[in-house]
C-alpha cells in the first residue's frame, strides 16, 4: 500500500491505496464521490473524466498513486460556492443536454476543459473535442447546443434536427 495525499475539490485528503487502485476507484469508493461514473472501464466512454491539475483525464486510466500531490476536480466540485449550478451545468439543464444522465458528469468536465482553452468553440470544435465522451441517448445535438450556450454563443431555440 502507498499513501497518497491530494486535493480533491479544494479539500486535502490522504488515503492508503494499492498499486493497482485507479483514480476513479479512489474517488468513488474511498471518497464517496460517486458523481464520477465508470461507464466502460476501457478508456473509451469518458464518463469518468475529471480534471487533474486543470487537465481533463480519464480517471479510470490513471493510477491513484500517480495523483499524489495533484489537484483533482470532479463533477461534485463544479457547482458555484453557493450551491447553485455552474454556467455549464445550468446550460445542460436549460438545453436538455442529457437524457439518462450517465455520461453527463464526464460531458460537463470535458466541456469545462474545452472552454478553458477555447472560450468560443465552433460546433465542429465541440464535436471534435467530445470524441472521447460517448452518449448513447441524445445523439449529441443538445449537448453541443448546451456547450455553445455555456460559451455565450447564440443557439437556436428549436430542438436540433
Amino acid at each position: 500500500m502507498t499513501k497518497v495525499t491530494l486535493t480533491v475539490n479544494g479539500k486535502t485528503v490522504s488515503k492508503s491505496v494499492e498499486g493497482r487502485t485507479l483514480l476513479s476507484s479512489l474517488l468513488r469508493e474511498d471518497l464517496n464521490l460517486t458523481g464520477t461514473h465508470i461507464g466502460c472501464d476501457t478508456s473509451q466512454c469518458g464518463a469518468c473524466v475529471v480534471h487533474v491539475n486543470g487537465e481533463a483525464v480519464k480517471s479510470c486510466t490513471m493510477f491513484a498513486a500517480e495523483a499524489d500531490g495533484a489537484e483533482v476536480k470532479t463533477i461534485e466540485g463544479m457547482a458555484n460556492a453557493d450551491g447553485s449550478l455552474s454556467v455549464i451545468q445550468a446550460a445542460f439543464q436549460e438545453h436538455h443536454g442529457l437524457q439518462c444522465g450517465f455520461c453527463t458528469p464526464g460531458m460537463v468536465m470535458s466541456a469545462a476543459a474545452l472552454l478553458k482553452d477555447n472560450p468560443k468553440p465552433s460546433e465542429v470544435e465541440i464535436r471534435a473535442y467530445l470524441e472521447g465522451n460517448l452518449c448513447r441517448c441524445t445523439g449529441y445535438h443538445n449537448i453541443v447546443k448546451a456547450i455553445m450556450a455555456a460559451s455565450g454563443q447564440d443557439v437556436p431555440a428549436v430542438a436540433a434536427e
Partner: peptide, 9 residues
C-alpha cells in the same frame, strides 16, 4: 491521437 483526455496523459 486518441481523444483530448488521452492526449493529456
Amino acid at each position: 491521437i486518441g481523444d483530448p483526455a488521452v492526449r493529456n496523459r
